[in-house]
Design a protein around this nucleic acid. Sequence first.
DNA 1: CGAAATGTTGAAGTTAGTCAATTACAGTGG
DNA 2: CCACTGTAATTGACTAACTTCAACATTTCG
Lengths: 243, 243
Amino acid sequence: MNSFGEPLRLLGWITGADAEQLDQLARERVADFAPREDIVSEGDPPQFMHAVLRGWLCHYKALPNGRRQITGFSLPGDICDERVFLIRQMDHSIAAVTNATVGLIDRHRLQDLMGRRPRLQQAMARQSYLRLSMQREWLVSVGQRGAIERLAHLLCELHLRLEAVGQAEPDSCEMPLTQSEIAEATGLSTVHVNRTLQELRAANLIVLRDRTLQIPDLRALREAAMFDPSYLRCGDKDVPGNG
Amino acid sequence: MNSFGEPLRLLGWITGADAEQLDQLARERVADFAPREDIVSEGDPPQFMHAVLRGWLCHYKALPNGRRQITGFSLPGDICDERVFLIRQMDHSIAAVTNATVGLIDRHRLQDLMGRRPRLQQAMARQSYLRLSMQREWLVSVGQRGAIERLAHLLCELHLRLEAVGQAEPDSCEMPLTQSEIAEATGLSTVHVNRTLQELRAANLIVLRDRTLQIPDLRALREAAMFDPSYLRCGDKDVPGNG
DNA sequence: CGAAATGTTGAAGTTAGTCAATTACAGTGG
DNA sequence: CCACTGTAATTGACTAACTTCAACATTTCG
């Protein structure tokens, strides 16, 4: 279900020879992960940069009290940790949400490549900026939006990001997250997520069944979410990946 | 109260000629701002990069419903928007919290300088990483920590960051934030912030009076906050600015 | 099939929000 | 110095949102 005819392109906003080089580098060494399996853990010294070739990953931080906060998702085409080479220890963990295939990119080889291809360097900076922008928007969500808006917002974001890499239709996409994962991402309890999803269904804003999300009226859902997609655009007019 | 004997050094973790060049560039053109004044607003095309020379700034996003979320603070020595040259429009606003002096750095001149001084480039990447790391931790706070922990955590972060730039004692620092600003930063109501601060006072974890925060027992406060400072260290052993 | 994970429901409890009034405080101009 | 202004801090009463606990139903998968 996650494999498409067209080959997946990493970092949709780069093209041509740069993109091919990056793709090639990412596919030289790959690893598969099962759901819930850690790809890197908090405290690890980072060895590789990771590129998502198939499946969904989540970034999370665990707290001493046993709870955890999912701080973001990485979808096919994303680079997870474009800043690894700056740090000595991971300050958060990255785990597979679905079955996932991840490209392991040697940091030194990447730095070499970036030296020769300045647009790649810029692309990494852009991915980094985009991640900050998403992080900020998630904080706004959890800090200021109520449960309905928060869930709607998350669904809008995931749908748009999937669409940008050709993995969604205009009115539907895969939704492999469990309610418990949605809860950890939004800072709500699983029970409340369950009830809030029912509200969204009752309002005809979503149809969520069989790991598939359908959106009967995207405009309505975005309005309910107070969703303004500009934070995903990195300052450009176009959505990343639509170029 | 905010001016110190030693001159403030931008980005504490760079030193020597690089630091001097950056300082010089930032001081060539400066501007003063009054509390609550916007330095850049959401939607603006960015003209300059901003370096905090004096005072506190806040980053925030406003919502259609009139509320706003403060997503972070910029303290003396910080660069606010080290990625401006990637974007065409600001996706959030930056405002002064106190009276503040800000260095306006022309993006082209900075890019020139970074070309000649690769360590500066790395320093910017590091600032960028640090901001992402803080953003992530704030999300964890708002998503998973209760009100007491959340406030304690914010105070711990600010105290440590101020200490790192020589603007705090081991057991105290300035605290110019109003309760309303603390509320906007933590996703709580002002009333609840007020009551929670009283709890922290009653537990002898803080003394907060006259815009000054005293911390009788730092270890106790950090424990109450579940504060682990490693997210401010950018993967290094040392705190930024203590090198 | 049976075990484990996920989703759903009800009832009760807790945390935090809202509204509205009051107090304390800082700055201003007379 | 004081009255006057506006902002910030504080308090009480009430309400709404969300959590917790515990049970049960459903789906997934070895």
